[in-house]
Amino acid sequence: SDIKVHVGDITVELHNVSEEFARLVEEALRLGLNEEQAKEWAHKALH
Rank of each mutant, 00 (worst) to 15 (best):
L24N: 04
S1G: 13
V12W: 02
A28E: 00
K39P: 01
L31C: 04
R23K: 15
L24V: 02
I10E: 06
Q37L: 11
V5G: 04
G32E: 02
E13L: 13
K44P: 00
K44L: 10
E36Y: 12
N34C: 01
H47D: 13
E35P: 04
L24G: 02
N16W: 06
Q37N: 10
L24S: 03
H47K: 10
R23A: 15
E36V: 13
L33R: 04
H47E: 14
K44A: 14
E20A: 12
H15F: 08
L46W: 12
D9K: 03
G32M: 02
K4N: 15
H15R: 01
L33G: 01
K39E: 06
E35G: 12
L24Y: 13
I3F: 14
V25G: 00
A38R: 00
E35F: 11
K39S: 05
E35D: 07
E36G: 11
I10F: 08
E26H: 08
L29M: 08
N16Q: 10
E40Y: 09
H47G: 14
L31D: 08
F21Q: 02
D2Q: 07
S18F: 04
I10D: 05
L33T: 01
I3L: 08
Q37K: 10
E19Y: 14
E36T: 12
G32K: 02
W41N: 03
H47F: 09
K39T: 06
L29K: 02
D9G: 14
R23T: 11
G32C: 02
K4A: 13
E36F: 12
E27I: 14
E35S: 11
E20Q: 14
I10S: 07
I10M: 10
K39L: 14
I10T: 07
W41F: 14
E13Q: 12
N16K: 05
N34V: 03
D2G: 08
Q37Y: 07
V12C: 06
H15N: 10
D9I: 10
A38M: 01
R23C: 06
R30Y: 15
I10Q: 08
T11G: 05
R23W: 10
V25C: 01
L24E: 02
V5Q: 03
L33S: 04
Q37R: 09
L24C: 02
V17S: 07
K4G: 10
V17L: 04
F21M: 05
I3G: 06
V17M: 06
A42Y: 01
H47I: 13
D9V: 09
T11K: 07
S1H: 13
I3S: 04
E26Q: 09
A38N: 00
L46F: 11
V5C: 02
K39Y: 11
A28N: 02
G32N: 05
L33Q: 07
H43S: 12
T11F: 10
E19K: 12
L14N: 04
K4Y: 07
A45H: 15
E26P: 00
E20I: 10
K44R: 12
Q37F: 06
V5E: 07
L31Y: 12
A28Y: 09
R30W: 14
L29Y: 03
L14E: 04
L24T: 02
S18I: 03
K44N: 14
R23D: 08
H6V: 15
E27D: 11
D2A: 10
E40F: 08
L14I: 05
L29C: 00
R30T: 12
E36N: 12
V12H: 05
F21W: 05
E19G: 09
D9E: 12
S1W: 08
E40H: 10
L14A: 04
L31S: 11
L46N: 09
S1I: 09
V7Y: 15
H6R: 02
E27Q: 14
I3M: 07
R23L: 11
T11Y: 08
L29T: 02
E36Q: 12
E13Y: 04
R30A: 08
H15W: 08
V17Q: 06
G32T: 01
S1D: 09
D2W: 08
N34L: 05
A28Q: 03
L14D: 03
S18Q: 06
A45I: 13
